[in-house]
Simulated scan of single mutants.
Amino acid sequence: METTPPIKRWTAKRKASLVMDNLKDKVTVAEVVRQHDLTVFEVEDWIDEAQRNMENGGKARPKDIREQYESDLPETKEALSEAQRSWFL
């Protein structure tokens, strides 16, 4: 089995490469998690971010980064709140 040295810093370029491989069905999230000692949450977050950026980039007038994150904030807070509630149950 091929092992690669751990990556200490995930640059945007490395993340983009990994996400593109996933979107092209070259690698699954589970494989990435195992190969690079990441969490499913980290990888899925990178994929979600890439998809948001692609959607935003295709618009006639893309949102700026701050506006994009502010629009995602209520959903993110709700997800965090649900995770916290389930943790204490």
Rank of each mutant, 00 (worst) to 15 (best):
E49Q: 12
L80I: 11
D72L: 15
L89Y: 06
F41L: 06
S71N: 08
S81Q: 13
P5T: 12
D37M: 04
P5I: 05
W87Q: 11
T11P: 03
S71L: 10
V32M: 14
D72V: 05
K13N: 10
W10D: 03
D37R: 09
P5R: 09
E82N: 12
E49D: 09
W46P: 00
A12T: 02
E82W: 03
V32L: 15
W87M: 13
R52H: 09
S17C: 09
L38G: 00
I7G: 05
V40L: 02
H36R: 05
E78T: 14
T11F: 01
P74K: 02
H36Q: 15
E82T: 10
P5D: 04
E42T: 07
L18S: 01
Y69G: 03
M20Y: 01
E42V: 00
E44H: 04
V29I: 14
M1P: 06
E75L: 12
S81A: 09
T76W: 13
K63G: 02
R61G: 00
V32H: 02
F88V: 08
D45T: 08
A16I: 01
D64P: 04
R14W: 09
E44A: 03
E75C: 07
I65A: 06
S81G: 06
V40C: 04
D64K: 13
D72A: 11
R52A: 07
I7D: 05
E82S: 04
V40Y: 04
P5G: 05
V43E: 00
D64R: 14
D25I: 01
Q35T: 06
